[in-house]
Amino acid sequence: MLNPVRPGGTRQARLRTVEVRLDRCRDLPRQLRALSEHGEDPARGRVRPAEEVDG
């Protein structure tokens, strides 16, 4: 659980980190579905770096 009172914007940084991780988790099932729908091997799916994932 996030601590509601952290000085210096730490809470916002932590929230951003959690958002990025969540985006990466959501990306993998989408990726697997897309590969499968286009006749490609879903085993090629991988957890991608944050820079490659659209939020």
Rank of each mutant, 00 (worst) to 15 (best):
G8H: 15
R21N: 01
R14T: 09
G39I: 02
R24A: 00
V47S: 08
P7Q: 09
M1Y: 06
V47F: 08
V53E: 01
H38S: 15
P49C: 13
T17C: 08
R11P: 05
A43R: 09
D54N: 04
P4R: 14
R16D: 11
M1H: 05
R11C: 06
Q31H: 13
A43Y: 06
Q12V: 06
Q12D: 07
H38L: 12
D54R: 06
D27C: 12
R44P: 02
R24Y: 00
L28M: 05
E37V: 09
N3R: 06
D41N: 08
E19K: 11
A50S: 14
A50T: 01
E37T: 14
L22Y: 07
M1N: 07
A50M: 02
A13C: 06
L35V: 07
R48E: 07
D41S: 07
R44Y: 02
T17D: 14
R6H: 03
E37F: 12
P29N: 04
T17S: 09
Q12N: 10
D23N: 08
L28D: 01
T10W: 03
S36G: 12
G45S: 12
A50Q: 03
C25A: 15
L32A: 15
R30N: 11
P29I: 03
R24G: 00
P42R: 09
L2N: 10
Q31C: 05
R26V: 05
P42F: 10
Q12E: 06
R26Y: 11
A13G: 14
Q31G: 05
V20R: 03
R14M: 10
V5I: 13
C25W: 08
D54F: 00
R26A: 08
L28V: 14
R30T: 03
V18D: 04
R16L: 10
L32E: 13
R48H: 04
T17Q: 15
R44N: 06
G39M: 02
P49H: 09
P4V: 07
R46N: 05
E40W: 00
P4I: 05
V5M: 13
Q12G: 15
R30Q: 07
V20H: 00
R44S: 08
A34Y: 07
G55H: 12
E51T: 07
L2W: 11
L15E: 12
R44W: 05
D23M: 02
E37G: 09
H38T: 15
Q12M: 08
G45C: 13
R14S: 04
V5R: 15
G39Q: 04
M1L: 06
R21E: 02
R48A: 07
V18G: 01
L15Q: 12
G45I: 14
L32R: 15
V47E: 06
G55Q: 12
V5W: 15
L15F: 11
R26P: 03
E52S: 01
R11T: 12
R33E: 11
E51Q: 04
